[in-house]
Each structure stands twice: as C-alpha cells, then as structure tokens.
C-alpha cells in the first residue's frame, strides 16, 4: 500500500535534518518588554544535523532539557522550526503547503510516553484506532473495521473483538500502549517518532513492548526515531545513537561504536552513571560536578566545558564542531583524540 519506493533519489536515507534550530521566546513582564529591546530565547535545539537510514532506528538520548523531545517534534513538523531544513524521503518539508503537509503526516506517526494521556477516555479503542483511516483512507470505509481488528490482533490485543469496544481505563497500561502503537501503524506510515514509548511501563512489560516494536519494524518496514533518557534500553533497539547536551549533538554514530568507545567526556559520564544490574560491577567513577546549565545563556565554547574534568582553555573559547573521528562515529569535542585507544 505504501507508495514509498526504493527507487527514490533520496537513496538510503529516509530522513535528513540539516542545521535544525528551535528557539522558544522567553515570556517577559510588560516592564521588561518596554525597557529592554532584546528578547531572550530558550535555545532548545541549536543547530542539529543527522540522517536516518531507511529501516534504521536512530536513538536520541540525553538528560532532561537536552532538547531530545523538541528535535523529534520539530523533525516531523509537530512544532515549527526556527531555522534549518528537514528532508523526508527527499522532500523538503518546509516547501510543502499545509494541505500537502497534512497528507504527509500519514507517513509520519507518533507514539508518546503516556498512553493514558494520548487516548481519549470517552472513545472506545476501536474508534480511537480508526481515526487515522477515516482521515487518510476514507475510500476504504467498508474495510475499516476489518483493518482495525487485524491491526489490533497484530499488536497483541487478542482477541480483538473483545477489546474493540473497551475503553482506555478498562485495560492495563501495557495494553494501552499497544493501542497507541496500533493507532500509529494503521495509516501505514514510514516513520515512527517514539518519544519515551516504554518509560511508563513496568520492567516485565517493557521487554514485551520493546520486542513488539522491533517485530513491527521488520514487518512494516518502519524507520524509528527513538527518544529515550535510558541508554540501557536504547541498546536493545537503536542502530545509531545521538547523545544530546543542551540542544546540541555531543556525539553521534553507530550505537555499538559509541558504546564501546565513547569519545565525548559527557557521553562517558552519562554511560558511567547508568546503573548496571550486577552488584559485582558497581560504579567506581565519580560524577561530573554541577548540573545542566541554563539554556537561555548557554556556556561559551563547548557547552559541557564548565563540568568537563578534561577541559582546556580552548574549550571555553571555541565551539567544537562534529568531526568524524572514526567511521560512522562523530564527536564534537576538541580533545576527543585523547580518548581514542
């Protein structure tokens, strides 16, 4: 059904993002507005570029305030960007009209963290899932019910006939997230933006949902943007990973490459901070001082330098650019060479 063809000239990449920037204006009091001319901005995303392979999974990881959610939202057009370009399947999204963009949305769907908040409590599961079909495939009206039932079975809501008339509050949290997944997949999308999709679920349910997402990706040829704060979970689903700090990419590359040899001091700290479920391998490193700085006035030079244990003079003066130090592994750090074996 999908009209995506591999013959497209955009080649291997489904998504290409160049210099994406999103600044949110800071609310000011009337008096401040009168007496100061300059507006302050929260630089949530500040010049981010990446590509996602067709059928690949890019993880966006970072702490709160790193901009990971904003990058996802701006990429698929849920939020207007301040600067930069987003190409989806070779098409520049900013050149599309509202109408064309709406049609394009069929191919880009979202799964949010909290399934209860994403589902209308007064809509049955079936009517929630069918919405996308009503908008994007009105001509198939007779088949809608069967398509919904089939998708519900596929995501593990079996028997679908039993669940189709239930309401969100009558099912468990894990099942609710399955409904959200079914609703996202029903329009036959190419790209799924999954924003912390399993963070709310319990450990035993997480593994099931993660596995479901991996299976569905293969079956429906999906590409994922997987936003997470949990580097350990990312390992099980992502091909590539971008480590974000204060609206910028600190390090990006193949997940296994990055995890086996993290080149940015921030990535190193973040990875060391993740607790390991093995009491014999307790962490011994100490953690970097301070906390994430204010994104309105980010530090000069490298944004991590005030907390970096290895910072040199250059780090506070010059902003490091992303460099491909190893194949499929880029890092924005002046002294990253020191960490190569």
């Amino acid at each position: 059904m999908s009209e995506t063809s591999t013959l497209n000239n955009s080649g291997d990449y489904l998504v290409e993002v160049n210099n994406l920037t999103k600044w949110f204006p800071v609310q000011k009091s009337i008096i401040d507005q009168v007496f100061t001319k300059e507006r302050d901005y929260v630089r949530a995303v500040d010049g981010v570029s990446f590509k996602i392979r067709r059928g690949g999974v890019l993880g966006l990881a970072g702490e709160s305030g790193s901009g990971k959610t904003t990058i996802g939202r701006v990429t698929i057009g849920l939020e207007k960007k301040t600067k930069g370009e987003v190409f989806f399947d070779g098409i520049n999204l900013s050149e599309l009209s509202e109408e064309e963009l709406r049609k394009m949305r069929r191919r880009m769907q979202v799964i949010f963290q909290d399934p209860l908040a994403s589902l209308n409590p007064r809509m049955s599961l079936g009517s929630a899932i069918v919405q996308g079909l009503k908008i994007h495939y009105p001509e198939l009206k007779e088949q809608h019910r069967d398509m919904v039932l089939e998708m519900m079975e596929r995501v593990g809501l079996t028997p679908a006939r039993f669940y189709i008339n239930k309401f969100p509050q009558q099912i468990s949290g894990g099942q609710r997230q399955r409904v959200v997944i079914a609703r996202a997949l029903i329009t036959k999308p190419d790209l799924i933006l999954a924003d912390e999709p399993i963070a709310m679920a319990d450990v035993s349910v997480r593994a099931l949902l993660l596995d479901l997402m991996i299976q569905l990706k293969k079956e429906f040829n999906l590409t994922y943007i997987f936003i997470t704060h949990d580097l350990a979970t990312a390992k099980y689903i992502c091909d590539d990973i971008a480590i974000l700090y204060l609206g910028k990419i600190a390090e990006i590359g193949n997940l296994k490459e990055v995890y086996s040899l993290p080149l940015h001091p921030y990535t190193q700290a973040l990875m060391a901070a993740v607790p390991v479920p093995d009491p014999h391998k307790r962490r011994t490193q100490s953690m970097p001082a301070g906390e994430i700085p204010n994104p309105i006035h980010p530090p000069s030079g490298c944004r991590f330098h005030p907390r970096c244990p290895f910072a040199k003079d250059i780090c506070s003066q010059e902003e490091p650019i992303l460099r491909e130090l190893l194949p499929e592994h880029q890092v924005a750090c002046h002294i990253a060479e020191n960490f190569m074996k």
Binding site: R206, D230, T233, V276, P277, D278
Partner: peptide, 8 residues
Amino acid sequence: LSVPNIKL
C-alpha cells in the same frame, strides 16, 4: 533477565 543492561 528483563532488566536492560548497558554493557555491550
């Protein structure tokens, strides 16, 4: 066994 582990 269902706890994710960051170690490669």
